[in-house]
Amino acid sequence: MVGPLEKILGGLLLAIPAVLFLRMFLHGLQYSLGLKGLLQSGWTTTHWEAVFRSGVLLESMALSAVTALIVTMLSLVGAIVLIGTRFCYGAGKSLEAALLLALSTPAIVMAMLTRLWLEPGGLIARMLFWTGGISSPAEFPVLINDPYSLGLILCGVFCSLPFLALFFLRVWEANALHRYVSTAVLLGASPWQAVWRIALPMLWNRSRTLLVLIFLWNFSAWEGPLLVGQQSPRMISVLIADSTGEFSLADRPRSFTYSTTYFVLAAAGLAVLTRRGRHHVCRD
């Protein structure tokens, strides 16, 4: 029931991202195979072999995946706690205002704030100095650019949690979950029990896809890892961005090997997600 003009216009406009994305993938693939570039060597798989032999890409992927997973899980727990607080202690408009304020903070500002609070010369360290907790920044624990990515994880959680919590509030409202949990409370459950046993499974069912998206966003995150992440291994976006400007010109194709792999994985992840969803729909 869509008119031909609409189809043509929509198709043409869809072609813009289609072409840009397709060409960026092809450019990277050709470059990584020695078929493009000022210093191209002609068809070769040496860059791919070198990348997989060095293990830098795999380490980076693993770090990105683990960090994203931890951030997603902590955000989920945090969002549940906030929802529980909302229900058990009656937090209302102020909680929503707090979430909207946090949601309005861009990732780059969140990364900057993480540094400002947690670095050895940062706000917490200064407060500790004035209260006699430490006498110099060197005594403050390392939480920024640290080997365990603590600062990065915290930054990711502060970016993702408000989004998830607001989504939960919306689902709560749309599905009138308060009726179920109130009934449970009236029947003798404690408010936290009601949230845990009644609301949580319902929220979980509706937020699974969003959780996957939050995982993927954190997997690809750049600003946070750039400012507060560790130097080695690097998160995948930082690795790709850094490696395009590496010092040896001959190694430039390596960065396109990274980006091509990244695009393939992203597309594969998306294909699996959409396919799984369709199977799910079919079964229903």
Binding site: L20, M24, L213, W222, S237, S259, F263, A266
Partner: peptide
């Protein structure tokens, strides 16, 4: 696709 791909990586490749 744009929901999950990193703009900086896309920018470099575009």
């Amino acid at each position: 696709f744009p929901w999950i791909v990193s703009p900086v990586v896309a920018g470099i490749s575009m």
